[in-house]
Computed example of a mutant assay.
Amino acid sequence: MDARWMLRRVYGADHDDPDPGPRLGHAYVELVGGPLDGLLLDVTGRSRRELADGAALTTEIGAYGAGGRAWYRARPGDGRVWQWEGDTP
């Protein structure tokens, strides 16, 4: 795991979690752009098909507020980085 990731927050970690960073033995992608920029997403155990589909991640800070979702998909040529593609209700 990239050493710089060890200090990053993982998407879905509670704000009061004393250790919101990545866990050893897990696989992560970096979220880039949009409301979740800079977070890591745990993709441990996801199939190639699931990874190819990307993810609609719940967020309160996107364009649609509470309950809205931010779409992220792998950056072409770099599956370790997922780019923001937009928000949806």
Rank of each mutant, 00 (worst) to 15 (best):
G62D: 07
G25W: 10
R23M: 07
A52I: 00
W84N: 04
G67R: 08
D37A: 12
V29H: 10
E85L: 15
Y64E: 05
E85K: 15
R9E: 05
D19G: 06
A70F: 01
G12C: 06
D19A: 11
R23P: 00
D53Q: 13
L24C: 00
W71I: 14
Y72M: 06
P22T: 14
R9Q: 02
A63D: 12
R23Y: 01
S47R: 09
L36D: 01
H15C: 00
G34T: 04
G12A: 12
W82I: 08
L31A: 05
P76A: 15
V32C: 13
G79W: 13
Y11P: 00
L51Y: 06
M6N: 07
T58Y: 06
W84K: 09
R8V: 02
D17S: 12
G68W: 11
L41M: 07
Y28F: 09
E60G: 15
R75P: 00
D16K: 15
R48L: 06
V10G: 03
G65Y: 08
W82A: 13
D14F: 01
G38V: 07
I61P: 00
G25I: 02
A13N: 01
R46E: 03
G79F: 09
L36S: 01
L57S: 04
H26P: 01
V81M: 11
D37L: 09
L31Q: 07
S47Y: 03
D78W: 09
G54R: 10
G33Y: 09
E30Q: 15
E50D: 05
W82E: 05
Y28D: 03
V10C: 08
G79V: 12
A63N: 09
A13L: 07
R8N: 04
G12T: 10
L41N: 04
D17R: 06
G34V: 05
G68D: 10
L39Q: 03
G21L: 10
L41I: 02
L31W: 06
A66H: 12
P18M: 15
G65W: 10
G45T: 09
G79Y: 11
E60S: 14
V32I: 14
A27I: 06
D78L: 11
L36H: 02
R49T: 04
L51N: 02
R75M: 14
H26G: 07
R73G: 01
D19V: 12
W5Y: 12
G34C: 05
D42G: 10
G79S: 14
A55L: 02
A55G: 01
A74L: 09
R75K: 14
R23I: 02
A70H: 05
L39Y: 10
L41S: 03
T59K: 08
P76T: 15
D37R: 13
W71D: 07
T44I: 04
E60T: 08
D37N: 15
Y28H: 07
A74H: 05
H15V: 03
Y64H: 15
G62M: 13
W71H: 12
A74I: 05
